[in-house]
Simulated scan of single mutants.
Amino acid sequence: MRKTSMMAGLVAAGVSVAGPAFAVDATQVSRKLSYNEEGVQGGLDVGIGLGGFTGDLGDETGVGGLFNITANAQPYQYIGVEVGYEGQNIPIDDARVLGGNHIWRNNGTLLGKLGPIVDKKWHPFVGVGLGLSYLHASSGSQDVYNNDWQTELPLAAGIEYRMGHLSAGVRATYRLVGGEELVEVPGTNDDAKGSLFNGNITVGGRF
């Protein structure tokens, strides 16, 4: 009982000492996350890159080029948001399909970004969002591949460098994919599953 009382006393003392420090930290965090209408920045980026499916889907497809165009805003010091379109041409590498066929991926994504702007130039960030893609298989593959809607949960990480009103960056995005009915695993009636991993570089402007 005495030991329990002593521990309770130490905890209470620790809370009383740490309380002001936590209050200061909370105030600073609140200030950093407060909306600042005068400081809102908007921008537009274009990008190119490479990527493809993982898992069973990756076994039957290859790495394909992509391009994207993204509108973004930074309404808070640490928090940004972007919405964009991404098009990607993913080659089919499947013995059941003649060579030269591909899947065209049309995607729209809304992404929230978290990260500081360091020295008014560097902007490292991580992001999470929601996306929806329409996968269109080329006509020569449609005995095996289907056109399909695909939901996506993108997880992104990257860094941007700002030069005045110009910006350049690199990022990697891993997308958890749902609702795959694109193709069946060879020799089975099971839908092929997988995720999507892309990397790209961007250039754009801030205003």
Rank of each mutant, 00 (worst) to 15 (best):
Q41L: 14
A23H: 07
G52D: 02
V29R: 13
G64Y: 01
S30E: 00
T61K: 10
D56A: 12
V46M: 06
G62F: 09
L57Y: 00
G43V: 06
G42T: 14
G39A: 15
D56C: 12
V24G: 01
G42F: 13
V40Y: 01
F67M: 15
V63Q: 12
D56T: 14
T27D: 02
E37M: 13
Y35A: 09
V29A: 06
G49V: 06
V24L: 09
F67D: 01
I48A: 08
N36W: 05
G43C: 02
S34V: 02
L44C: 05
L50I: 05
T61W: 05
G47A: 04
V29S: 05
F67Y: 12
D56Y: 05
D25E: 11
A26I: 12
G47C: 00
S30N: 01
D56V: 10
T61N: 11
G49M: 05
G52P: 02
K32A: 10
G49L: 06
G47Q: 01
D56P: 08
F53P: 00
F53L: 04
G42N: 11
V29H: 11
T61L: 06
G65Q: 09
L44D: 03
Q41A: 08
D25A: 13
Y35S: 09
T61Y: 07
R31S: 05
Y35R: 10
L33V: 09
L33C: 07
F22C: 04
F53N: 01
D59A: 14
L66A: 10
V63G: 08
L50D: 02
L57Q: 00
E37V: 15
P20A: 12
V29K: 12
F53M: 07
N36Q: 14
N36M: 08
T54H: 03
G52Y: 04
E37P: 11
G47V: 05
A21K: 15
V63T: 15
P20V: 14
G39Y: 08
L50P: 00
L50Y: 03
D59I: 13
D25T: 12
N36G: 10
Y35N: 02
K32P: 04
D25F: 10
D25I: 12
G51W: 03
V63A: 14
F53H: 03
I48L: 13
V24Q: 05
G58F: 11
G42Q: 10
G58K: 15
A23D: 09
G64H: 04
P20H: 13
G39R: 15
G43P: 00
G52Q: 10
Y35P: 01
D59R: 13
G43H: 01
D56H: 08
G65P: 04
